[in-house]
């Protein structure tokens, strides 16, 4: 029986970690006598932002983390950030295979699977959002909390005053009015208790989560074919299962928020289209810029966009 060690980027109580742990359970069930995953813990075992290097260097064999935590080494993760597809479609059309190939080339990592996809981000505000005559969102006077996932969009397109705050400080910042708006995924707001202060959700949602399982390449290659097969098959199954599970969780969260008085405001028509276009294009711009400085250049750029974005879907 072979064993691989694993760590996850977020605390154990977070929904995304629970999803990863259920993947581990499935592997350990299917892999009895062949392959087992030994979870060593979360950010208390290896720092959140040090995990990508740790798996690259073989300190740990497997890591579950957002691609954005190693975006400096792999700017192509922005294709997933800006995506409006899920792992199911991009597994079928070869998108994930391309991402795997890029991981192998640039970082010596096997990209096993894109989990918890199909969850997108909304802007959440305390006060009723205002719109200009053309129906575009007005951000003047909005104290918007940002971070490096969405700053390209918020700053470069919306022209918002972004206040960079670590997640742990957002609760008290909202409480005191240091910020009055933030981006966040569709789910998880209730767990963070931010809904105590935020009253509006702005639609449409944009972006996608980019959480994935990466495995040290040497370790991967040393595994038996049986072990590889089990890991890969369970991962592909979990890509599918997690999309469904998180959609159900989103509906549940939205219902709970609705019941608690969260109001939904939506951009329409032209304004909606240009909002979404800005979200993806500013992010692609950033991706292209960083790619062009790296070996390999922007060779995969067009192909990535084609595989990870369906223009017809918006």
């Amino acid at each position: 029986e072979e064993t691989i060690s694993a760590v996850h980027a977020f605390p154990e109580t977070l929904i995304y970690t629970k999803s990863f742990l259920s993947f581990v359970d499935k592997v350990n069930e299917a892999g009895k006598g062949v392959i087992q995953i030994d979870v060593r813990g979360g950010p208390e075992a290896i720092g959140m932002f040090q995990q990508p290097d740790a798996v690259r260097d073989g300190i740990v064999d497997m890591v579950y983390t957002p691609g954005s935590f190693y975006g400096g080494a792999l700017p192509e993760k922005d294709a997933m950030v800006a995506s409006n597809l899920t792992a199911v479609e991009t597994r079928a059309n070869g998108g994930i295979a391309l991402i795997d190939q890029i991981h192998q080339e640039k970082m010596g990592l096997k990209y096993l699977g894109w989990f918890d996809s199909g969850v997108c981000y909304n802007l959440w505000t305390r006060n009723e959002p205002k719109f200009d005559a053309a129906g575009n969102l007005e951000v003047e006077g909005l104290k918007l909390r940002g971070n490096n996932v969405y700053n390209a969009f918020f700053t470069n397109y919306l022209g918002a005053q972004v206040i960079d705050l670590p997640t742990g400080e957002v609760y008290s910042a909202l409480q005191r009015g240091v910020v009055d708006a933030t981006g966040w995924t569709q789910i998880g707001l209730i767990d963070l208790k931010w809904n105590e202060f935020l009253n509006y959700r702005i639609e449409p949602c944009f972006f996608s989560t980019d959480l994935g399982v990466i495995v040290n390449n040497e370790k991967w290659n040393s595994l038996s074919d049986d072990a590889k097969k089990i890991l890969q098959e369970v991962a592909i199954q979990h890509e599918k299962d997690s999309v469904e599970a998180l959609r159900a969780k989103r509906d549940e969260d939205f219902a709970a928020l609705d019941a608690a008085g969260m109001k939904v405001v939506s951009l329409e028509g032209e304004a909606k289209a240009s909002y979404l276009a800005a979200a993806r294009e500013k992010t692609w711009e950033r991706m292209k810029e960083v790619m062009s400085d790296q070996p390999g250049g922007t060779g995969n750029y067009d192909r990535l966009i084609e595989l990870f974005y369906d223009l017809g879907a918006d």
Binding site: D53, G71, G72, A73, N148, D164, V290, D293, Q294
Partner: peptide
């Protein structure tokens, strides 16, 4: 060798 960056607000050479 790897061209590592610290990615916070900017891409700063590690």
């Amino acid at each position: 060798k790897r061209g590592d960056f610290d990615t916070r607000a900017y891409y700063y050479p590690r």
